[in-house]
């Protein structure tokens, strides 16, 4: 197959993928546990994790201490929860990494709590 033939096939495939993406944008739903419907159980678990590991720096009410305030600002600073998760996992500045201290559920829970629990 010539280079032009390869490009033709590739462009066709990419075109189909792009069209499929557009269709999915209008048809695919996020599921029942969307970020705009906070999970009460997860928030409760997150409150425990927060009390044990986070409030010493970020304050019991999330208004800050030696660490920055989190209450009301987490979703703005981290529109993508996976950005927030990455900071928790690997740490940043004076904040230690929690990837070795917390399991996945605890991290998901504390993310939910800091976004919706204060």
């Amino acid at each position: 197959m010539t280079l032009r033939g390869i490009i033709g096939v590739l462009r066709w495939l990419v075109g189909v993928a792009a069209a499929a993406a557009v269709v999915m944008l209008f048809t695919l739903r996020g599921g029942t546990s969307q970020s705009d419907t906070p999970d009460a159980h997860l928030i409760a678990d997150g409150a425990e994790v927060y009390a044990q590991h986070c409030q010493i720096c970020h304050g019991s009410d999330g208004l800050g201490g030696t660490g920055p305030a989190l209450s009301g600002s987490v979703a703005e600073r981290f529109p993508d929860p996976s950005e927030q998760k990455a900071v928790i996992l690997v740490g940043r500045s004076a904040m230690p990494e929690f990837g070795t201290r917390l399991d996945d559920h605890q991290i998901e829970a504390v993310i939910e709590f800091t976004r919706y629990g204060f």
């Binding site: 999915m24 944008l25 529109p79």
Partner: peptide, 29 residues
């Protein structure tokens, strides 16, 4: 030129899909 552009475009499709579908247009900062 077209081959490179097509591959680059293809690589960004999963990215833009997640940005638009999952996060939306945001202006907090």
């Amino acid at each position: 030129h077209q081959l490179i552009g097509t591959v680059a475009f293809a690589l960004t499709l999963p990215v833009v899909f997640h940005c638009v579908w999952s996060l939306g247009y945001q202006t907090p900062t």
